[in-house]
Each structure stands twice: as structure tokens, then as C-alpha cells.
Nucleic acid binder design. Structure first.
Lengths: 220, 220
DNA sequence: GTCTATAAATTGATAGAC
DNA sequence: GTCTATCAATTTATAGAC
């Protein structure tokens, strides 16, 4: 009987639950850092073991295979980001205030974790990736609520009659692209001036909101 | 003396120039397909050789190493895309017509090569990638011309006094994101309905232009 | 130029002692 | 649970025949 199977059947027989979690957590944190930086195929199990300060065998003891470990990490990261995003809607303001807060918070999260979106999008674009669909469906991402809010505002005559789906995509596009496209845009638009690009990102939220606002405001 | 060095010194001594180009071209096309699909670390030299219908050794004969081959491919793809984009400006219309044509053609190019932008952005985001900066600088991408055109229109009072750099970034964002974010947006916004997403992309150009137009139009 | 054969190094994964 | 040792398969790259 293999060890990982044995562990599944009789877990934690020789070590306290706390210590076990510590090691598992250490592995997860190291794996998160390496996978996000180098992607699934670029990451090496040895790298992860080194970063976690443990032996390579322990990775297999806890996660059986590289794919299993990756799945766990991806799901963890995606869920965390999705959760952060969904929590943004807990605002008591009107639709304009809600959107402004959303854009502001979303951009803040992205800027605090600038390499996460590229990691996620890159892996989602891998061909034959059923994992993606499964994880997305399993996440608590639910945009129906958002679409309903928008539709209600349209019906009430508070905003222009636009496509709620378009509104979502436009907000995501305007927020995400300056982050994932940074190496390109910083070079060809800002001539490689990192400081200037940071300044630009700092006021990006006002720009994005102004654009979104103009797309939903009814002309008088 | 190694073979590749010998070839650099005395190229094409035993085979006609035409045949040589054919083989080199075959390798390049195969490498392009594989690298774009799987990325640098995900691609395998054997895959490329198989696709090119030649032996693995020939890859090294022509390109010495995987990195060299990748650099060649990346530069080739980036230059082609950059060239396509720059050619879009050859329009004789007014600024609104120019922008509309640009958005329309850019989106058409992206939709015809939907996995190219993710390939480029992903590799550019790799840490310690001097290659990126070098290739970008070596390309014929020149946005100064674009910024000048915009500034001239602003000075002439034809459009609003906006930041030309923002205009560029917003156009790129609104065009590129629906392509590279497709696996995500198709799932969480269109509930996995591929047909609906294709329809959406088909009219995306009108949407993007409407937004861009509204950001530069002077209110009366 | 193109091939076969193989080196040399890496990597994911397992066995088994403690 | 954690370690050492090692396997088996893969992968880049080279040597050498033709």
C-alpha cells in the first residue's frame, strides 16, 4: 500500500494536527509563490521544496503529484481573488457609488497582486484545461447578482439602457489590462519610465470610473 | 569545430539556397505553432521536430539551442503583429474615422490570431526577461506618431483635452481583454455559451468605438 | 544538410529506513 | 511525518556516419 493512500485512510496518526497543518501550509505558500511566478510547466518541484524548507518527497507525501499540488494552489488563489471581488459589492451607495467603489477596490487588489491575473489567465488559456471550468463553476463568483442590479437601474431610468454584460467586461478590461500589459505598455507608451507608470496607475481608478460613468449616464 | 559554427562561417555549401530556406522556414513555422500554444517552458523540441517533419538534431543545427529558436520565433511573431498594427494608421479619414478603422482592424487581427496576445504578454511578464525590452525596442512600434496626431487634434479643438497615453491604453485594453480573458469571461459572464460569445465579439468593434468616441467628444 | 545514436543533465515520483 | 537514496522517464544537446 502506498504512503499517500495510507495517509488518506489513517491520517495524522503520528503527528499533531497543528504541526501537520504547519507543514502543509508551508508547502502551499511555497508552491503558490513558485507556480505564480513560473507557471505550471515552468515550476519545479525541487524549487518548491527548497522554498518550503523541506524535502522533495514530502511534496508527494502531501499532494501525491505535481498536478494535484497545482490544482490545489490554483483553486486556492482563484477562490481568494474571487472572494475579494465579490465582497466589493457590499456597499450601500447608489449605482454610481457602487461602481466607483468596485473599480477602486478591484484596482487596489490587482495592484497589490500584479502577477496573479496573468497567472490565472495564462493557465485558463491552456488548451484542454477542464480544471479551469471546474474551478470557476465551483467558485463563489456569481455575476447574476450584478447583472440584476444593473437591469433594475435601467428599468428605473437611472442609467442608460446598456448591456450589463458589456459593462462588466469593460470594467474588467480597463482595470486588468494596465496590470498584465504593463511590460508592453510601460515600454511602448511610457518609454520604460517605471516611476511614471506607477504614477499613472495611481490615478487610473479615476480614469476608469470616468469612462464607465460616461457609458451609463443618460444625456440631458 | 562544431557544425553550427561551421555553418555560420561557410553557409550553404552543399545545398541550394532555396532548399535551405524551405527547411529553415518549416522549422520556424512549426516552432511558432508549438511555442505559441505551449509557451517557452511548455514546448518540447521533439514536438517541434515532429511538426516540421524533420529530425530533432536539425533544430540545433539551424538554431543551436532552444532559447535561440524561441528568441527567433518571438521576435518574428512580435514584429509581424507590430507591423500589422502600425499599418492600420494609413487611413486618410478624420480622427474619428482613423480611430474607428484602427479599432476595427485591430480587433479583426486579434480575432484571427486569438492566442497570440496571450503568448506575447505571458512571455513579456516573465521575470528577468531582457529579451522583451530588446525586441520591443528593436521593433518598428512607434506610438509617438499616434500621440502627435492626437495632440494636434486637441490643439485644433476637434477633440477633448485628454491624455493621449490613456487613449492608447484604453483602446488596447478594450480590444485585447475580451480575447485573452475569453476563458474567464465566456464562463462567468456568458455562462459558457461559446456561440453567444462569438456573436458578442462580432459586434465588439462598435461597442469599443462608441466608448472611445465618447471619451474624446466635446460636449456641446 | 540530414540522419542515428547517445551523452548528460534534469525531473517527477517511489521505496524504505527511522 | 520526514529523510536519503534511487528509479524511470524525459529532455536538451552533441558526436559522428553518410
Amino acid at each position: 500500500m502506498t504512503k499517500w493512500l495510507n495517509r488518506l485512510i489513517k491520517p495524522n496518526t503520528q503527528m499533531s494536527e497543528k504541526e501537520k497543518i504547519n507543514t502543509e501550509e508551508k508547502i502551499l505558500q511555497a508552491a503558490e509563490e513558485i507556480f505564480v511566478k513560473d507557471g505550471h510547466s515552468g515550476a519545479r518541484m525541487q524549487q518548491i521544496a527548497d522554498k518550503a524548507g523541506i524535502n522533495k518527497s514530502l511534496l508527494h507525501y502531501y499532494y501525491r503529484s505535481k498536478d494535484k499540488l497545482f490544482s490545489t494552489v490554483f483553486k486556492f488563489i482563484f477562490s481568494k481573488l474571487a472572494s475579494d471581488i465579490m465582497n466589493i459589492f457590499d456597499s450601500e451607495e447608489d449605482i454610481f457609488g457602487k461602481l466607483e467603489k468596485f473599480i477602486e477596490n478591484y484596482l487596489r487588489i490587482l495592484m497589490k497582486n500584479p502577477i496573479i491575473p496573468m497567472f490565472i489567465l495564462n493557465e485558463l488559456n491552456k488548451k484542454g484545461n477542464n480544471l479551469a471550468t471546474i474551478i470557476i463553476k465551483g467558485s463563489n463568483i456569481n455575476l447574476n447578482k450584478f447583472e440584476e442590479i444593473i437591469q433594475k437601474e435601467i428599468d428605473a431610468g437611472n442609467i442608460k439602457n446598456i448591456n450589463p454584460k458589456s459593462l462588466i467586461i469593460n470594467i474588467l478590461a480597463l482595470c486588468v489590462f494596465p496590470i498584465i500589459g504593463r511590460p508592453l505598455t510601460e515600454e511602448i507608451v511610457f518609454n520604460g519610465d517605471t516611476k511614471k507608470y506607477d504614477e499613472y496607475l495611481g490615478q487610473r481608478k479615476d480614469e476608469v470610473f470616468a469612462i464607465i460613468k460616461s457609458t451609463i449616464t443618460i444625456e440631458k
